[in-house]
Amino acid sequence: MRHVAKLDPELAKSVIAVGGDMHRGGTMGLHEHAEHLISWSATAMVSLRTATRDWLIPPTHGLWMPAGCPHAVEVFRPGRGYAVVLNAKNCPITWTEPTGVLITPLVRELIVHLDQHPEQDDTRATAVSLLLSLLEPVPDTTFHVPLPEDPRTREIAEALIADPADHRDLAMWAVHTHSSVRTITRLFAQETGMTFAQWRTHARVRAALIHLAQGASVGATARAVGYHKPGAFAEAFRRVTGQHPSVYL
């Protein structure tokens, strides 16, 4: 638990939690906010993307988006979503990068409470203080796919995100980008912290989560993201997430 020694009364008054229905296919282009933002999709599945990273946010997690960080939004599964808006001037949380947070049952209830009770009182101030004290960053998970910056590797990444079933190997991608296998290998490791094969697996698992959330079977999902055998897909999925894909149906 984070320790919030003393909550600024003005911050408690300025924190706003807004819930609403999110519709499949809904998008919002690149934009930014003057305030910090916590995005949580209670029953929806949403993608948030910055210039260098792409997060898939399931209902179990939220994403801290610092003030002034350009990001885009896309809804893959309809449902209920919430945004918690915090004044950047006096907020005790100082994370300067988009940061994943775990939405525990208590955090969930606090966000819903703030949405349902916008009136200012001592109970609401206590809820804000408790919410901020409970927010802890979580390690990057499968929901985060780092995006390389070099034009050659970025072209490969964009193509595989658009079509995760693309089976071109590293040599074919090197020819496609007028580069060498050695260069592409070095750039992927340098810019994403992963080998090309590891990055593609993460991109495929991320795409699989969308298919599973939309109700596709494990077999159909495996084929859609480039696996001929459901067993091979399930094993790759388990290595990345620690769970069998059927858990995410």
Rank of each mutant, 00 (worst) to 15 (best):
V225P: 05
I184P: 01
L56C: 05
Y227W: 15
M22G: 00
E119S: 13
P137I: 03
W173M: 04
I38S: 08
S246N: 12
L37D: 09
G20L: 02
R223N: 08
H117E: 10
G29K: 11
S129A: 15
L110P: 04
T241Y: 01
T142H: 08
V175P: 02
A12W: 00
T126Q: 14
P92N: 11
W95I: 03
Y248R: 14
Q214E: 13
A83D: 07
N87F: 06
T221F: 12
R2M: 09
A174L: 07
I57M: 13
V240S: 04
H33E: 08
P58C: 06
L170A: 03
T185W: 03
A44H: 09
T142M: 10
M22A: 07
V247H: 14
G81M: 03
P98N: 10
T195H: 01
T201F: 01
F233G: 05
G62P: 05
I210T: 01
T50I: 01
R80S: 06
N87Q: 02
H36R: 06
G242P: 03
E158S: 13
P70D: 10
R77Q: 03
T99H: 07
E32D: 11
V128C: 07
F188E: 04
S14G: 05
A208P: 14
L110M: 12
G81N: 09
W64G: 09
A222L: 09
A224C: 11
H23T: 08
P78Q: 06
I156P: 02
